[in-house]
Structure formats: structure tokens, C-alpha cells
């Protein structure tokens, strides 16, 4: 059977008829395999969900305990119908995994989102040889070479030194980026309390329970703190909070944002960011190419992002690829 009869896109998402399941479905399906807990990959309302324990926990935190009919923790090699399935770490966020699927004599790997930089909050990416490699392409342009995150954190600390009377508001998404930024700060020696927006609390607590040593985190809405008390402090929040009246409680804040998109100046300016921090939980261009070399597939399928550039590059290297045009994924997800 041809590979695209074994695994193919449907309106619900990528479907494997051999195992009768969807990977990261965008609409409710009877059986879903979920790579990680970000909202455009993990959605509520499926009949059954197979994912890592941490992804299942995160989905329960986000959507409530009844987010799915039944759940199964991914462990070892699992048989689903005519398919066998294994999960491998993806290095993207806590619990994130690639899904390896063997069906009809073909081995597929669906990466979900992945990252190859060292990430203190996620188990490191592991290249899995396969026939068909189904990759994300969020940062698939040769302009994206993510810098060393420690150097980006050094910029934040330098800014605090230069503007000690101002608060530093760092935009970071609630799952993954926020905890990574906190860990990078701790590694850089920042052991003062870090103030967090209410929407980060539950996921930060969960990371701490899972053994990620985030240190002293305090609510940014602590009423005992006067405006001036936030001078020189670091406050983490989802970027949407900057537009809210919530931001008015801090003294002359410097707006920072931790995202791979901050590599592009116009993006930073568009968002009104004063201190762009190029910290990404996705593979950059060299890592996408390196990974494809290591995995060495017959064919690469590209799920979402900038597929034209990646296809062009692979064609230049005599590699076969094609876009999957999956719908329902954010054009510019949490970078």
C-alpha cells in the first residue's frame, strides 16, 4: 500500500486507518494520539486519548478532568489495531513527544512540535529513523537561527541593571515558555522571587510537582506590594496581559517577550516589545535540516509552518518532500 493510504490528512487531522486513530486532531474523534499539551495540538472532547502522562495531566489542568472519555498513558510499544505505536521525547515542552507509527510495513514519525536546544523543562529530542518523517516547519526559513538562550537572558538581566527603577514584564506563554524562562533565569543566578500572572500559576505548580525546580514564584497581583515595590523585579505573563489593565500596576514597565518570532525586528515592534528575547521552543532552520539528515527518511511530509522554504531546500538536496496542508494549526503558534 502507498504511504499516503496508511496515514493521511482528513478534516479532523492526520488519520491512520490501520490503527483507527488521529494524531493531534482538531475536531473531536473517537481515538486521538496527542503529541503535547499546546492548545492547537491538544483539544478536549475526544472519545479516547493516548499521550504521555504529563501531556494527559496538562490536558486535565487546562480542560478539566473530563477532557476525554478514556485515557491511556503512552508506555513502550503499543498495538492499536494493525498499527504499532511508540512515543519518543520531542524536547518542546514538558511531556512533549514524537509519535512513531508502524503500519502496513512503513514506519512514520510525527514530530508534533520539537526543539533540539537543551531545554531544562523537557526531555531532550531523540532522532528516530523512519521511512516517512512528518515534521513541523514553524521556523522553516533560513533567517531563523535561534541564538543561545543564555545570551538572551543576559540581555534581560542587563536591562534590569540599566533600568533598576522599572519593572520588567516578560511575555511568555503559559505552557513551556514561561517555565523555560524561569529556569534560564535561575541558571543565570537570578534567585530572587519571580512574579507570575495568575494564568501561569497552575502550570508552574505542576512543573514544580514534576521536579522542575522553579524556585520562589509569587503572584504578581499580591496586594501587599505597592507599585514601586516592583521596581527591578521580573514579572512573567502571557503577552495578552500587556494590553490589560493588569499592566497598569507596574512602574514604567519594560515590555519583553520571549519568542522565536522576536528574531524579526518588525514582529517585535508590531507587538510593542521593547526588549525582544529570542527564545524558542521550536527547531530552527539548521536544526530542521540536521534532523532530517539524521532521521534520513525516504520522504518528508510537512505539517504546518513555512513549508515552501523547507521543500525548496530539500529539493536542492535531492530529498523528496510534500506539504500536508493540515488545517487548524496556528499560522504563528506559540513560538
Amino acid at each position: 500500500m502507498a504511504a499516503d493510504d496508511l496515514l493521511f490528512p482528513t478534516p479532523e487531522g492526520l488519520y491512520c486507518p490501520g490503527g483507527d486513530f488521529h494524531v493531534d486532531p482538531v475536531r473531536p474523534v473517537p481515538r486521538a494520539l496527542v503529541t503535547h499539551g499546546h492548545a492547537d495540538h491538544a483539544r478536549p472532547g475526544n472519545g479516547a486519548v493516548l499521550a504521555t502522562r504529563q501531556t494527559l495531566d496538562i490536558m486535565a489542568i487546562r480542560y478539566g478532568a473530563d477532557f476525554t472519555g478514556t485515557r491511556q498513558v503512552a508506555e513502550g510499544t503499543m498495538t492499536l489495531g494493525d498499527a504499532t505505536v511508540r512515543f519518543h521525547p520531542a524536547g518542546h515542552v514538558l511531556g512533549s513527544a514524537q509519535v512513531e507509527i508502524e503500519t502496513g510495513g512503513t514506519r512514520f514519525v510525527v514530530t508534533g512540535d520539537y526543539c533540539r536546544h537543551r531545554n531544562p523543562v523537557a526531555e531532550g529530542f531523540e532522532p528516530v529513523p523512519c521511512d516517512i518523517f512528518i515534521t513541523e516547519a514553524t521556523f522553516a526559513l533560513p533567517v531563523f537561527r535561534h541564538p543561545d538562550p543564555a545570551a538572551e537572558i543576559a540581555k534581560l538581566l542587563a536591562s534590569i541593571e540599566a533600568f533598576p527603577e522599572r519593572a520588567h514584564l516578560v511575555g511568555a506563554y503559559a505552557l513551556g515558555k514561561a517555565q523555560r524562562v524561569i529556569m534560564l533565569l535561575r541558571e543565570a543566578g537570578w534567585d530572587a522571587p519571580i512574579y507570575i500572572h495568575g494564568s501561569l500559576e497552575r502550570l508552574c505548580r505542576y512543573h514544580a510537582e514534576q521536579g522542575v525546580p522553579l524556585g520562589d514564584l509569587r503572584p504578581a497581583t499580591d496586594d501587599s506590594m505597592a507599585k514601586a515595590d516592583f521596581a527591578g523585579q521580573i514579572i512573567l505573563a502571557p503577552p495578552s496581559a500587556f494590553a490589560a489593565t493588569w499592566a497598569q500596576r507596574f512602574p514604567d514597565p519594560v515590555i519583553a517577550f520571549a519568542s522565536g518570532w522576536m528574531q524579526i525586528r518588525a514582529r517585535a515592534r508590531q507587538r510593542g516589545v521593547e526588549l525582544p528575547l529570542v527564545i524558542s521552543d521550536h527547531a530552527d532552520w539548521p536544526d530542521l535540516l540536521r534532523t532530517i539528515e539524521e532521521v534520513n527518511p525516504e520522504e518528508t511530509w510537512i505539517t504546518h509552518g513555512r513549508e515552501e522554504a523547507l521543500m525548496r531546500q530539500l529539493a536542492l538536496g535531492q530529498r523528496r518532500s510534500r506539504p500536508l496542508h493540515l488545517i487548524g494549526f496556528e499560522e504563528e503558534p506559540e513560538g
Partner: peptide
Amino acid sequence: RVDAELFALSYDFVGDLAETIALI
């Protein structure tokens, strides 16, 4: 130095010539 098509896609995304060249 760079494939013309990849450069064009990148420039289209970045929007600034010097910045695109610096990054690519």
C-alpha cells in the same frame, strides 16, 4: 551565497533587506 528562491521567501517574510541579509 544563498539560493535565490530561499532568499526571496525570507525577504518576503522579514521585510527589510539589510536584516534579511544579516540573518540569512
